[in-house]
Design a protein around this nucleic acid. Structure first.
Lengths: 238, 238
DNA sequence: GCTACAAAAATATGATCAAATTTTGATTAG
DNA sequence: CTAATCAAAATTTGATCATATTTTTGTAGC
């Protein structure tokens, strides 16, 4: 009688043509977003039991989702069977900046070579929503729309392996990014998307790569600076 | 009374101090090695039922292992609930070469800064076993020892995020590497490890990075060349 | 402060249900 | 009469859950 059905939303059409999404994928997507957009703080514990109650799903699909996210760097195995949202160290953020710079600029090059007018229109629409979120000061919307912009660019690049790496990087800095934005608001956030869009329209791969690299570095430096302050991620668990 | 105990080997000390390894980790490690060292060919299907029989484990831990390896690029979701060992495309190998070059050389730099005399001794021992495998013409041993050398270097570098990326790259080209070596033997295989070891002893980060980059590129180019021939990975499943 | 007991949480298995693929059989065209 | 194509049954495989076992943690008593 699991009347709550906390996971049932999204395909209530009662039509049979609705593509069936397995529960483990739903749990995965839900948890992934929670990490990516900072609904779970760095250091926060994630328990199987807690997710069973939170989602109403069974044990097996939840385990699968957790394993998957652990592989992707969104969660971390903290020894005693405890799974937590990882906290960034100074060394880790350096590596993340390096990775995102190199991978994202290569993806940008690929995207510039393959982009169509439809893609550009989609990117411009997303970017306008980024702007709107910034002026509104809506941190959550900014994080989601900004990710949507980059994700769309990855999709255009059509390089699944590089995209996997990029997404893993996002999952690793996402929680800290949220903490930083929560403190600073949306004013100082980077948005070099216009420059990138101009380069994309001109199909200039190198210029696109440079614009995206600039965007990436500016955003990541905010996190690094906050990490240096030390006050940023002090939610130590034990 | 699971008398078969096909997974029990490896910790039969009957001591209680032996660290207990969860079944899902055992299955993961076993499957991972099978992919990494080419015991499973590119395109080969991997079924849950098959693994249950092969390993004697239950369903849940096997599912966990499969999800994890899918995230890491070792396996691929082929639509209709079919999981296969991915086959490399020309585009993919380009991205893998790029990734391995950039990530591995950065790991080499880190390693050069942190390496100790003990580490160097360990690396030299592994490298001698690489040499031995090459002269013996033992492909399987070469693959394992060569990986061991690189993995040890990653461990010394102490950069978990970069290591994850590097390992994911290994899992993606491993099966094809095995096919290539199976056709060519061990004669033309790269081994720039001596140059790298010299640079490591001198704590010269840049020279270490260059040596490892050379090693990586030589090895990966073998795969790219085989891919171009087209004859290499023709085990199409269709 | 240390040991022992109890409660909570994670691991692992097997059962059950649903979906997909394969096999089999029948009908029809050559 | 043979071969090919389509349909339906059967087998195989995957998804989910409920349950049992082990491990860990927290607490109370010594």
């Amino acid at each position: 009688m699991e009347g709550t059905g906390k996971l049932g939303q999204g395909f209530e059409h009662s039509d049979e043509n609705a593509a069936r999404v397995p529960v483990h994928q739903q749990v995965y997507a839900q948890l992934r977003d929670a990490v990516l957009f900072g609904e779970l703080a760095p250091g926060q514990a994630v328990t199987i039991q807690g997710l069973i109650e939170r989602t109403g799903a069974g044990m097996t699909p939840i385990r699968e989702a957790i394993r998957r996210l652990t592989s992707e760097g969104a969660l971390e195995f903290r020894g005693n069977r405890r799974v937590v949202v990882p906290m960034l160290t100074a060394d880790a953020i350096d590596d993340l900046i390096f990775l995102r710079e190199t991978v994202e600029s290569r993806l940008a090059e690929h995207a510039a070579e393959k982009i169509t007018a439809t893609d550009i229109a989609a990117l411009e629409k997303i970017d306008s929503q980024v702007d709107e979120a910034i002026t509104r000061g809506d941190v959550s919307a900014y994080l989601r729309q900004n990710y949507a912009f980059h994700a769309k660019l990855y999709a255009v690049a059509n390089a699944p392996i590089l995209m996997d790496v990029a997404n893993s990087v996002w999952l690793r800095f996402g929680p800290s990014m949220r903490v930083v934005c929560g403190r600073m608001g949306t004013q100082n956030l980077p948005d070099n998307h216009k420059t990138a869009l101009d380069a994309l329209k001109a199909k200039n791969a190198q210029a696109t790569a440079n614009a995206m690299r600039e965007d990436v570095v500016q955003g990541m430096e905010q996190i690094r600076a906050a990490l240096r302050d030390g006050t940023a991620f002090s939610e130590t668990i034990d």
